[in-house]
Structures are given as C-alpha cells and as structure tokens.
Write a protein that binds this DNA or RNA. Structure first.
Lengths: 141, 141
DNA sequence: TTTAAAAACAGTAATCATAATTGTTTCTGT
DNA sequence: ACAGAAACAATTATGATTACTGTTTTTAAA
C-alpha cells in the first residue's frame, strides 16, 4: 500500500467525515470545508476519499440517488436508508459479525473482506412528515 | 400505481432478466436483446428497469463500478460481489428474514420495505486466477 | 372495425457524478 | 538546501443515466 504524506486538507476531510453521522456525499464534505479551505478542489475530495477507502479509514455504505455515501465509523454496523429523504441512519443491533464472512468464504471458496447490511424504507421523520427536517441530509436534490 | 400497457420489448426484457443469474447491468440487457430487437433503444431499457423496480418485479442489488446491477429473483437472498471482476453471486444461506425488518422498524420508528445483505471480496475464479473466465460478467471495463 | 386517448418507443441531447490530466506547489528525508 | 515524491487546483473528459420530442403501438370503447 502506498505511503501517504501529511496533508492539511486530507486531515480536515477525515476529521469532517469522522465527526458526523450523516454519511455524507463527496459534495457535502466539499461544501463543509470550502469556507475553511477556500481553494479546496472537488477533485481533491474525490481523490482523498478513494485513498481513505484503500486504507480502510472510511467505508462506502450505500449509493443513494446516484451518489456514493461514506462513513468514517468503520466498526461493523448496519444502516437504514430512507428512500424518501435519503437520510442514512446507523443500526447497531444487527449483524456485523465476522463469522458471517467466514461462513460465506468457506462455502463459496472466496475471500470475504467485509459485508454490508442495509435496510430500505421510510424514516421516522418522513412518516410523520410534519416539518421538513431534512436540513442536514446529504445528497438531497 | 400506474397501469401498464402490454409491450413486446418490455416482456423480453423481463424474460432476459429473470432467466439469468448474472445480475446484469442495463447495457448487458440491451446487448442481449438488440439482435432480436434491432431498433431497441438503451433509453427504453433504463425506463423499463425503473418501471420494474417500481412494480417490484426486479430489484437493484448493487452498484458495481458505477453501474447498477439488477436481479429478477426477488426472493430474499444475499449477494457476494467480487471487487476484482465485478461478478455477483447469489448467497442463499443467510439473512432474508422479515423478522429483521420488523425489529428495525419498531426500534427506529420507521417503515422497512426490504433489506440487502452484501458481501465483498475476491471470488473463487479471481483467487485461482488461472484463466480469465470473466466472459459473461456484466459491467466489465 | 374504426378511432381517439394513452402508453411505448427511437433517437438524440442534456445532466451530473466521478475520473483523468497537467502543471504547480508543498512535504519529507537526506 | 535540495531532490524526489506526493498533494493540489483547475480544467477537461468520461460514462452512466435521464429528459425531451416526434412517431408508432396498444388499448378500450364506440
């Protein structure tokens, strides 16, 4: 694996990703940082996200409306995706065991690196849809 | 839900999707059919795929290298995605229970329509990589 | 069976997320 | 300080998917 130099912007990116639980898009991260780093480039965000994935610092949890969604919390946990508003919620009570992976590996003679468990449906906010509380949901049209 | 007219091409699409276990891309379906339907349009394939999803006739199982992958087998089952060759393999021995969904629904006060369980790793063929047996894998670059 | 409205379609152009390229700047170890 | 590596911005390119427009098929009812 490649050796990485230090980089202020990359650090800031990781900081942003790890301190939110909104499972942001590339663009959300970009918008978050461009006030602090006015000459940040979207290309840099994409490139660093790929590096983070390579290094296992960040995982891709879903693709919602054509946009990849990332998570800095790499501990094994599932996700719920609201198909109405695009919100992604952590689900900590199910799956996430390595024993799944091992079972599949031996059954199918393959190497299993990881697995994802993702639920799809309508979130609490959207069900009770009183107020449009989608302010902080990344990837909204 | 919308009322659908009959359509030869749409029928053929569904037939193709349901009689393969390769979890094809839109383009793979298009290429499969264009010998029988020389004036089939890729736009038609995309439009009908979206209709199939709406109607629950087909599910989207993964997004591999930026391409959506479909499955005409809508019975609950998991998938293994080879990150080397893009192959997707059915995994029939895990998950798929509605009780998961119900548990999440009550815990998070949400409506759960479905869930996906997806394993990522290196498939048998790619591990033993003697021959390039990726002939029928959709979505290969 | 005409016939008119609705839906499906081809062909094409437009979008939009992401990737690649290029030339410049910043690190980092020596 | 300096040379090579990595990071970066800016721009351009790519490629999957969607939207649009005018034409053809399908449908159901007269």
């Amino acid at each position: 694996m490649r050796k990485l130099n230090f980089s202020k912007k990359r650090d800031a990116m990781l900081e942003v990703i790890c301190s939110t639980n909104t499972h942001p898009t590339a663009e959300w991260i970009y918008n978050r940082l461009k006030s602090d780093y006015p000459n940040l480039s979207l290309g840099t965000v994409y490139r660093n996200l790929n590096l983070f994935k390579e290094q296992g610092l960040v995982v891709s949890v879903a693709n919602v409306n054509g946009q990849e969604r990332f998570d800095g919390n790499t501990s094994a946990h599932a996700h719920f995706v609201c198909t109405k508003c695009g919100r992604i919620i952590d689900v900590d009570c199910v799956g996430g065991s390595k024993s799944f992976d091992n079972r599949i590996a031996s059954m199918y003679d393959c190497e299993v690196d990881r697995h994802t468990i993702t639920f799809y449906g309508t979130c609490s906010s959207c069900r009770h849809a009183h107020s449009d509380s989608t302010a902080d949901v990344p990837g909204l049209k």
